[in-house]
Design a protein around this nucleic acid. Structure first.
Lengths: 213, 213
DNA sequence: GCGGTTATTACCTGATTGTGTAATAGGAGC
DNA sequence: GCTCCTATTACACAATCAGGTAATAACCGC
């Protein structure tokens, strides 16, 4: 069973290298290779590939917009970004737009083949540096969390607030008077260095003091 | 240059298998192997390893707490989780607690060695399934985002609110009257199906309609 | 036992927020 | 030209929120 694949890469030499590499390897068949993704939707329609390799920096339309177009109409096509960019913004924007993998261009041919196999198998291949960034994203939150020194009770009250409860509702649900709720929230606001409920909610979610779901 | 390594794994057979595997391979030296992590801080202190392999399900103290203890006192020690658990909660909790990698126990010996090398090199090795979960986390947000149908102006107003501004402050910063702000937020609340500002902020952040930083 | 922390309630006052209704005006699309 | 959508403002009323001050009680550590 052959996995069909389309390449978007504006650098001619690199594009042809990829085609060559993948023509030798068994298991993949390049059915299309383009230098920009302005006609990406039509091309997906007619070629119906299993996988797409997508450069970010291309004329007319970037790969970031490209992946959004592909995924909005053909969510089952697996898309892996292939780029020199390793900044947080671009990485996370691509992932949010639906990219299934993110490879940096310093990836060796062998690892690239492996990544494509992982992609075809439903995985999410990414370069080590990207994996690191992704893990960092989760960690950043927890850092300050403990510094606020909220008591367990205060965290509890704050949770009710984040879930959209008014002072009165919190009072009812916590079996305390509304004045106590008020006092608790006043203390919470001081500890979080904020002046109102909305700001407290923003800070609580930002620092994962409480989390939704 | 040898990389020292400590193993926490309550299954005796598996623990010994790991030791054996890593004793054969060049590059790693197992300097400690324990069946629970109750004394993890002392052990880190005396053994000072480069890497730690950490099971989650252990008696007395789970690996989730273990990684928190390790990272809070020895942030430079690289910790990789090694577990059968593949549920979102445990994965994300470990990552938030500072884990540098997350491997499922179905990882082949060869891939485990590779993952440890990646870990030592400062990467964030994870099993394909885990990588998928992590990518999904980012995607989920964007899904509903467009369904709320907020106008650009409404998003703008909502952003000010999330950043902790009162109606009056939003009015000043947007160069409109406070009544207009009020009206906009009223419409926003309806579209988000919420009743108050705090709830709107929570929903806006949850669905990444606006994001902080 | 004493001091510190946490949790609790009360009262008062002013500011802010949330709802309803109504009206004006510009731009996009048919 | 007319309608729909967006943005704008106004007013009035009720509810809620936020600040300050003060007091009680339980619990914990030294």
């Amino acid at each position: 069973m052959v996995t069909s694949l389309v390449i978007y890469e504006d650098n001619v030499r690199l594009r042809e290298s990829l085609e060559l590499l993948l023509s030798v390897d068994s298991g993949f068949q390049v059915t299309g290779a383009f230098s920009n993704c302005t006609a990406v939707v039509d091309q997906m329609e007619s070629l119906a590939p299993d996988l797409v390799i997508l450069d970010i920096d291309m004329p007319e339309m970037t790969g970031i917009e490209g992946v959004r177009h592909i995924k909005s109409r053909f969510p089952d096509v697996k898309v892996v970004m292939y780029t020199v960019f390793d900044d947080d913004n671009r990485i996370f924007e691509c992932i949010c737009n639906g990219a299934d993998g993110y490879l940096l261009k310093n990836t060796s041919p062998l690892n690239l083949i492996k990544a494509l196999q992982e992609l075809a198998a439903g995985g999410a291949p990414m370069s080590p540096f990207v994996a690191q960034k992704v893990f960092q994203y989760f960690r950043n939150a927890k850092k300050e969390k403990d510094a606020f020194n909220l008591t367990p009770r205060e965290v509890e009250i704050l949770e009710w607030l984040v879930r959209g409860n008014s002072y009165k509702m919190i009072a009812d649900k916590s079996f305390i008077s509304i004045d106590t709720v008020k006092k608790h929230l006043q203390n919470i606001y001081h500890k979080l260095h904020v002046n109102c409920g909305t700001e407290a909610v923003a800070k609580a979610l930002q620092h994962k003091i409480v989390s939704l779901e």
